[in-house]
Design a protein around this nucleic acid. Sequence first.
DNA 1: TGTTTTTTTTAGGTTTGTCTAAATTTATTT
DNA 2: AAATAAATTTAGACAAACCTAAAAAAAACA
Lengths: 243, 243
Amino acid sequence: MLNYSTSEENYIKAIFHLQQDDIPVTTNEVAHELKTKAASVTDMLKKLKNKKLLLYQPYQGFRLNSEGNRVAVGIIRRHRLWEYFLAEKLKFTWDEVHEVAEELEHVSNKKLIDKLDEFLGFPRTDPHGDPIPDANGKIEISKKICLTALSFNTPATVSSVSDQSGEILELLKHKKITLGVKLEIKKKFEFDGSMEVRIGNQRAFTISKQLAENIFVTAIQSALKFQLENATNTSSGEKKKNK
Amino acid sequence: MLNYSTSEENYIKAIFHLQQDDIPVTTNEVAHELKTKAASVTDMLKKLKNKKLLLYQPYQGFRLNSEGNRVAVGIIRRHRLWEYFLAEKLKFTWDEVHEVAEELEHVSNKKLIDKLDEFLGFPRTDPHGDPIPDANGKIEISKKICLTALSFNTPATVSSVSDQSGEILELLKHKKITLGVKLEIKKKFEFDGSMEVRIGNQRAFTISKQLAENIFVTAIQSALKFQLENATNTSSGEKKKNK
DNA sequence: TGTTTTTTTTAGGTTTGTCTAAATTTATTT
DNA sequence: AAATAAATTTAGACAAACCTAAAAAAAACA
């Protein structure tokens, strides 16, 4: 619909990511996330409230309203599609895509993004395993949790690895644990924190506490839909003033 | 090397395009090109002179110095590669690519652009027939002239069509004149401005004055090299302050 | 050549987004 | 519950990029 400045978009995205629980987001959290100062955050909160994207009472925290969420999901869609493009087509590595996508995500031309989506074959997740919202803003809500926090016999998908050093990748390769693999926990040992996990119907095997702490999985649960902008968004130059 | 704001880049690009002849560029020309006011142009000229990209004496016109040209060519490279990507991969039409590329060109990550170039197979020209500078800033200088201004028996390449209505495209299709086709003029008739042209070694045929006025060709002449930024340009967030 | 017109620059103001420092509100302790 | 600490907001400044109106320089012309 409307266009927002790069700065506004960065605040919207940060608030979206921080509000995943039900407790309101605080000024300091956003300031820390965006590496800026609390006073700057307050300034922007007033602006976003004026633009009717935010529920905000001074000193009481804040959260995006439904319009704010809709906008946030649009930004996340752009970000993740570009990440997928960079990894899949331009052969960037996992850890390089985020930084470049941070810039590309602010080019907000609806047709560009929908055609990119089509070109990429409508991918479901980005290279980190996070779900990509579709053109209508439908996004699979997948709680990403550490493998150590997964319950017994609950199938989950490996979605990311926090440490990306050569050593851990070697170990994962040996255990045949790759992004997107479905697994479940069969046993946990209190003594050393190790656990037995099973991939599909193969025989269960053991992984150490250290390894489990670095593996994150998602149990796909439900789908939430945020209505996305359908505007004839030719974007460019004029509209987004504050670039 | 250094990063420039979107606004600075737009001025640099505009000046580059306007200075193709040897006469200095004027304030009003740039103001008109960028749809802004002369006073704003003067402000920016001071800034660009301070950053040592511009030769500028108040009231005397201005032009980019070699560093300014180097930066301009980098921007043009990004613009044209994105145009090629949009047309070739995302199936945008000729007339849609420019607007979107205007936004994408300001994402100035060297690695992104070089990998995009490679992904696209190192294209030589964009969808409008304009040459794409290579990673070192080497660009084929091709004077784009109207077919009516082309001399006899001078081979030239069709590089663009000003009017892109359905009617003209139909006619071009019939005459088998497409982008990139090599042709030369064999005869001109003063009476109605029509001319005989020959494509390759086929038989010459007639085209009307109206058609000729809408066809632009290039006679590839020489190559000029502007050294491009080789910086470890991880770009993103911090550096480009004024987005 | 002197006068008028056009072009360009300067002066001063606005908006966006940032900052520091001070004031205010809320939370925590004792 | 009063005192202290922490979080948040306000006040006032600044830089970037734009603007309008006025002044200055260059160009045109009569």
